[in-house]
């Protein structure tokens, strides 16, 4: 915009030959400028993206998330047999891998304050790494349109401190 307006203000065209203009506008502003900016940005994105991946970790907790119209069911590797509906319990301060899948149509698992979203696709298991730094309740939603009940297809995440996480695993009321 800043470049556009002066073009209208000038009365007489400056007598520069076309090839000099090409050097400024096309080589300089058209090619070099965006290339440098974009290369930097992509590199930065890849580094950050790499850091968010579910790499191996020592104190890892694994949970499962099964979506269906319009409900979420969560399971816990540390406590086989236990499932919870529309509430996911995790320990705070530890990396958690959520294994996401779907029983019917495509849904998406999204807890905005903990991580980006990842789709739940029938037949596939996608793994999302989340980590809550502090104990508390976080809102989670399904973020892929799934028909009539889409609006209310939400859940919450309870992040526990070590003591209450232990209590949850033992089966005491959280």
């Amino acid at each position: 915009m800043a470049l556009l307006l002066p073009a209208f203000r000038r009365r007489e065209p400056r007598a520069a030959p076309d090839d000099r203009r090409q050097r400024l506008w096309l080589w300089g502003l058209g090619l070099a400028f965006p290339s440098v900016v974009l290369a930097t940005l992509t590199g930065y994105g890849l580094v950050v993206g790499e850091r968010l991946l579910p790499h191996a970790a020592s104190d890892l907790v694994t949970v499962t998330a099964e979506a269906r119209q319009w409900e979420w069911r969560f399971g816990y590797a540390d406590r086989p047999g236990q499932t919870t509906e529309n509430v996911l319990h995790i320990p705070a301060g530890r990396p958690v891998d959520v294994q996401i899948t779907s029983l019917d149509v495509i849904h998406s698992f999204w807890v905005p304050r903990l991580a980006g979203k990842l789709d739940a696709i029938p037949g596939h298991v996608n793994v999302l790494r989340i980590e809550a730094t502090r104990p508390g309740t976080y809102r989670g939603l399904s973020a892929e349109f799934s028909g009539e009940g889409y609006l209310g297809h939400t859940f919450r995440v309870e992040a526990h401190d070590p003591a209450s996480w232990g209590a949850f695993l033992r089966g005491d009321a959280p």
């Binding site: 890849l46 993206g49 790499e50 991946l53 579910p54 790499h55």
Partner: peptide, 10 residues
């Protein structure tokens, strides 16, 4: 270029 830089199957 990512073949040289990122993790393969994660």
């Amino acid at each position: 270029m990512p073949v040289a830089l990122t993790s393969t199957c994660l």
